[in-house]
Design a protein around this nucleic acid. Structure first.
Lengths: 117, 117
DNA sequence: ATATTATTTCGATAATACTCGAAATATGGT
DNA sequence: ACCATATTTCGAGTATTATCGAAATAATAT
């Protein structure tokens, strides 16, 4: 992934409403959630939701699947995976991600696993 | 980490210039890079750089250490670690992060490692 | 065909963020 | 004290993003 792509994905998630939407979709799993239900759960005006869904779609983090009158939005796990890979590879280099106390935390383990690829 | 904090950190990284700055600092390691050198490497006007450094500092992703006339900026690895932990925990739930083809990729391994905590 | 429901697009407004020259501040050298 | 260098703050202009009512589109049901 190139930096321009990564920064666009990060910007998309860098808005509380959109992060909440994405989180909801991830937790909903592969069947997704239709727009109306997202509106209801997150208390958003339909036009506002539509704006944010379009943004997330544009950067490839979600996609929509029409089913009857509904459009079910689904998180794109592969896109998120690529973003996380970019961050661990470029913004969390090796042993430097060790916290000061020397304890091994998630990022470190994550990095080790990644290098074992 | 709460969603407000996570979205602020993501927004900070969601700008190509700031992501480039953060990446540079991560790669520079614990001694950091002084502002002037960042300016030079990334070809930024001093005032512009200062604006972005302030933004990254405000959300806790970097910090500055005065040394003589210079201010060395350093990436906060712990903050990045927490952000990655938030994303893997909240936006990449378990087996759902498996890509369609069934191959195991980074995020999956990452998630498994995380659950073994 | 018409009505109903789901969602998006349009349009206007408001708010926030970005860029950068110029001036201000801070530190160190002479 | 003065000068040079490093960085930030100020201020103003520009651009981008967010919100949401109202109208338009799309799908289904009656």
């Amino acid at each position: 992934m190139v930096i321009a792509t990564a920064s666009k994905a990060l910007a998309a998630l860098g808005h509380e409403t959109r992060l909440a939407i994405f989180r909801l979709l991830v937790q909903a799993g592969p069947q997704g959630v239709n727009a109306g239900l997202i509106c209801e759960k997150l208390q958003l005006a339909p036009a506002t939701l539509s704006f944010h869904l379009a943004h997330l779609s544009r950067v490839g983090l979600i996609s929509g699947r029409q089913e009857g009158r509904f459009i079910f939005y689904v998180a794109d796990y592969a896109a998120m995976d690529e973003l996380l890979a970019y961050l661990t590879d470029n913004c969390c280099q090796g042993a430097q991600c060790l916290p000061r106390n020397g304890e091994t935390t998630t990022a470190t383990k994550r990095r080790r696993t990644a290098s074992a690829r």
